[in-house]
Design a protein around this nucleic acid. Sequence first.
DNA 1: AGGGGTACCTGCGGGC
DNA 2: TGCCCGCAGGTACCCC
Length: 264
Amino acid sequence: MPELPEVETIKNKLSKNIIGKNISNIQILSEKNFIGDSEKVINKKILDISRIGKYLAIELSDKYFLNIHLKMTGQIFIFNKNKKPDKNTRIVIYFSDNSVLFFNDLRKFGYIKLDKEKEKQYFIDILSSKFTFEYFKEKSKKTKKPIKAFLLDQEIMAGLGNIYANDALFLSEILPMRKTNGLTDDEIVKLFKSIIFVINEGVKYGGATAKDKGYVQPDGEHGQYQNYFKVYSREGKKCLKCGTLIKRIKQNGRSSFFCSHCQK
DNA sequence: AGGGGTACCTGCGGGC
DNA sequence: TGCCCGCAGGTACCCC
């Protein structure tokens, strides 16, 4: 579920809520969703929270990190200690001030991993200064696969998922099945700008909350970017620019949405 | 090497 | 109503 804007929103809200707290206990309700020795987190203090791509890293005292990936349906909530786990609660972290962190995940793909270092620090995060136009252009010239797959490759640029990749292609008027190294220089410019734009819009609206079981913020608030989708999930609806009906195809097992008139 | 397909899970909604 | 199928915001792993 969550892409860069969703994870960024979670990071920002968590920062306000849990930095400085001490962990008093942890309860693992689903073994596969916690990796590492969970006992080691007890009595650690939360020092900082950072994000790279779709990964969250909670820095603990004694140089430990809780690396978190939410995959499709992971959620993080902060409640007071009276809140009872529900059927999707996989991990509960108790703080000494009587608040709790819930890790909920319907599909159980996500995880919290205790490690001695942050994950994927080599990633080029889209909101970082390392993600430059020169870098983007150089990578695109060397890539033969379809542009949609290129945008989703976290090793190239970290943060885009299916929603924002589709919307960035729509804004730059490029069809998702085009070969990456076949794009013109002008298209590369437009695409780079569109990526930055949609990611920032996603952050501005607090991410996209589209379904009951999907992404919500740690305080239960919903994101609003779903009200600003450009093509994503709009199959059969009118293109916002020209009125042509939006089409959907499958690429590498994922849906791609596009306007066959506006996108070339 | 790089690309595609599948696996990992659960639940929802549509068609018959 | 019930069953079967496709679908879901992600990525690791296998195979060619």
